[in-house]
């Protein structure tokens, strides 16, 4: 399974990014190969509009199965996420990526 995180950096110790559409990085953790890879999403900061749907599309193309994030996508982005079938877990905003993963494993995050 590919787990995606919205993060402010590219490592396990990076802080989570509470934002969805304008998150700085998308981290992908494959729990079979145990590899953590990153996608630079910082271009979204320059989008006047539609950062949410675009980031959702990026997630789909990164083949994520589940997303772990802070506030969760809203409006248009939520509509795209629904199409992608990616599960969304929120409430991991004030954590590091590692802490967010642990919280996810313990079932502490809220599934939207």
């Amino acid at each position: 399974m590919n787990l995606a995180f919205t993060a402010k950096g590219t490592t396990w110790d990076s802080n989570m990014d509470t934002r969805f559409g304008r998150t700085e990085y998308l981290l992908i953790y494959n729990d079979i190969s145990k590899e953590l890879s990153s996608y630079d999403n910082r271009e979204s900061a320059n989008y006047a509009h539609g950062a949410g749907p675009k980031t959702a599309q990026n997630l789909f193309e990164l083949k994520a199965d589940a997303l772990i994030t802070g506030n969760g996508p809203g409006g248009n982005a939520a509509a795209v996420m629904e199409k992608t079938g990616i599960d969304i877990y929120i409430g991991a905003g004030a954590k590091t990526v590692k802490e967010a993963y642990e919280a996810f494993q313990k079932g502490e995050l809220i599934k939207v």
């Binding site: 749907p53 599309q57 789909f60 248009n76 795209v80």
Partner: peptide, 23 residues
């Protein structure tokens, strides 16, 4: 279509094209 849209009003998810009229 989604590559040329500077406003991200067109999104492709697999074999589905989504359009966001307000964008």
């Amino acid at each position: 279509c989604h590559k040329v849209c500077n406003f991200h009003a067109v999104i492709r998810i697999g074999t589905d094209i989504m359009i966001f009229p307000e964008l």
